[in-house]
């Protein structure tokens, strides 16, 4: 039950820690359980009860998204915590017109995970990184080569089935973006294909994936 409402205004020199829930006695009869969007908006008004409810819905997914990018389970938990704190911190800026609450939170987790991977990468042996780049550059023209990374072990049966509808190239572009945390431009560079081609693969692949998921029972 989440009917907590902010009873104080933001401001003052001391960061406000907790909000008091207003009395329920005068509240209207409890409606259907709140949507994730309602919960996130209530977080934005400072309701820690709403955060608890949102956490219960999304925390496991946030952890999974983080692990699919960073791979290391401990690091993923760490990233997930950072992402959830960030979601709380920035929830006053959440606008439902700009996307669902789930997508909003999971995207924060995805970005956090990518940031972490990149930071770790920077810290890794520079020589090793340069060697790998040189090797890649030494084999140009590897157009339309499907990178052999098995992302399927992270996919639910439903997602695997839906992804099977895509062409290999579409699936590869989506997997590199999602699990590899790469931008369209980075994927184009990595695969040695034009940026426009990569954009088209992602756009068409995402459209097909969306439609395929509608066909696959949960």
């Amino acid at each position: 039950m989440v009917t907590a409402v902010a009873v104080e205004q933001w401001g003052g020199p001391v960061p406000r820690r907790h909000l008091r829930a207003v009395s329920n006695e005068t509240a209207p009869p409890e409606a259907a359980s709140p949507t994730l969007e309602e919960l996130l908006l209530a977080c934005g008004r400072g309701s820690s009860e709403a955060f608890d409810a949102l956490y219960a819905e999304l925390a496991a997914q946030v952890i999974r998204v983080a692990r699919r990018v960073v791979h290391d389970p401990d690091m993923a938990e760490d990233v997930a915590q950072e992402a959830l704190v960030e979601a709380w911190r920035t929830s006053p800026k959440y606008d439902p017109a700009r996307g669902s609450a789930r997508a909003w939170v999971l995207t924060i987790a995805h970005r956090r995970a990518i940031d972490r991977v990149r930071r770790e990468q920077r810290q890794r042996d520079q020589v090793e990184a340069e060697a790998a780049t040189a090797e890649r550059e030494a084999a140009p023209g590897a157009q339309d080569t499907v990178v052999e990374v098995d992302f399927r072990r992270w996919q639910s049966a439903r997602v695997r089935e839906a992804l099977d509808v895509l062409s290999d190239l579409q699936r590869e572009a989506i997997e590199l973006a999602y699990y590899g945390g790469r931008t369209q431009a980075e994927i184009a560079e990595q695969l040695g294909v034009p940026l426009g081609t990569t954009k088209t693969r992602i756009r068409d692949g995402m459209t097909r994936l969306r439609e395929a998921l509608k066909e696959v029972p949960r």
Binding site: S100, R153, Q155
Partner: peptide, 30 residues
């Protein structure tokens, strides 16, 4: 954009029951 909500949710689905249980446990622990 709202139409892709299900795609993002699906990508965050557990691959199997073992993973689901582990992540639920991790969430509870944290």
């Amino acid at each position: 954009l709202a139409g892709y909500d299900d795609v993002l949710g699906a990508l965050a689905e557990p691959s199997d029951a073992t993973e689901a249980a582990a992540d639920d446990a991790a969430a509870a622990r944290l």
